[in-house]
Design a protein around this nucleic acid. Sequence first.
DNA 1: CTGCTCAACTTGTTGGTACAAGCTGATGTA
DNA 2: TACATCAGCTTGTACCAACAAGTTGAGCAG
Lengths: 270, 270
Amino acid sequence: MYQQVDRVRHDGVMSKQPKYHQVADVLRRDIVGGAYPPGARLPSESELQERFEASRNTVRAGLKLLASEGLISSSQGLGYEVRKYEVFELNASRFENLTFPQNGDSYTTDVTNAGRRPSQTFRVEMTPTPEYIAERLKVEAGSTSVLRFCHRFVDDVPWSTQATHYPEWLISKAPRLTEPGDIAEGTTRYMAGLGIEQVGYHDEIATRMPTPDEARLLEIGAGVPVLLWTRTGYSEERPIRCTITTFRGDLNRMNYEIGDLSARSESEPQ
Amino acid sequence: MYQQVDRVRHDGVMSKQPKYHQVADVLRRDIVGGAYPPGARLPSESELQERFEASRNTVRAGLKLLASEGLISSSQGLGYEVRKYEVFELNASRFENLTFPQNGDSYTTDVTNAGRRPSQTFRVEMTPTPEYIAERLKVEAGSTSVLRFCHRFVDDVPWSTQATHYPEWLISKAPRLTEPGDIAEGTTRYMAGLGIEQVGYHDEIATRMPTPDEARLLEIGAGVPVLLWTRTGYSEERPIRCTITTFRGDLNRMNYEIGDLSARSESEPQ
DNA sequence: CTGCTCAACTTGTTGGTACAAGCTGATGTA
DNA sequence: TACATCAGCTTGTACCAACAAGTTGAGCAG
């Protein structure tokens, strides 16, 4: 039943790969070669059983491999389909405007400019500072901080979650941070008006597979990682905010422009 | 055999989750709660069968779920173990030194400073420009370009691959780019000495699951995404290089420091 | 004591069966 | 015609059995 040698591949070539691996390889080649374009439906499991002369378990193992690579997705009753991407560009560096609004405005503007419809839910909490945040805000882990949380959608597709923490000492200086509603002019501008100016920031970018919570909020299927963007904003004296944004990795790409890029913008008139 | 209602969870609470999902949930809780610290070995499949009163396949489905989240890994004959991370920080923004060497020096310095041992293999090719690169270099797709390829290790663990493409028109101006060996002073400095100065760059950061090739080169197991870093360097006139770096997502984190961060560096004397 | 063999563990692969549950179009009834 | 029902497709879950193959340590032969 289980042999690693003398196995004949689908194309007739000998191979030492397990059979489910060969199933995945052939289908992957078909997909990247364009035989199944993005959005196309793959043959059903039973058809693939015949095609590869394999049991259902074996075929499913191969399909699961492709799903974990993010190439395909499946739904009960509908079959397997080739995943289609649609990347949204994020501009992370804007020197000319270090105090651009973080909560809402930048996102709303970018999405609207791209001809898409933004929407979001919003929440404010007082919460103990998690250790990861506390390190960056230079406060004690567990001390209270203001958490302003955003769940963002583009055309009703979940896009990102954003959690901004403000340290406790800021509350007395900028009390509106604790207000449950949106701050129209943006938190950065509001704080700048109070003399708390963000003069620099530190960005950290990491990636990993989503936690079950993240997978639920962002409606992420198997094989799609998240992109984690941590931005710590500084006044001249100390850190004043720490924002963690969690993006769907298949839908977003971050951009940083550094130095003189006149050569780039000149020749890109569109 | 297959019921979604009236199923009793391991802790005695009713649940509509499939059983393999419950297995994963309980184990995940144990792992993040510290019952199984990083590097620890999980109970064997047969032990888990008894603990959860489930078949081997069901237990394996739960374990596979955790593996696809990047929480655990398994090896034949050895069992399952909790994955341990060790993040390496990458400094992507260095304003003071826009012409810092890209091929080798920056990596070697950073890794050595961290007390680790860097090593790499290196290769130079003349190759047709892939479309993705051609767009960024503003040359025709398929036109020849110089590809300088690096496969980098830290303490003999595969860390990243880096592919830098130089457009064809540069070759006559900077012929040493096609030399198969390393350029001691760094390509950026070499080109600057010839009057081709990199005055700005555009970074793009994306994430996805590795292709089989990437998984092989970087020795990536299931559940670990890659971090893709595309840097396009510009002279005052036009793009002069495009570098794609592929990192293991579990081992790397990118850092950008923008604006005035005196408040950060002051209070971090280490 | 050294070194080899092998039993007993581990996970990996492949086959099978059965039923649950989601989706769609055909069919039949009002 | 309008609508509900259902057969027949799809994938999802759960079980069983068997054998392959990597790892380790006990135990035996030299």
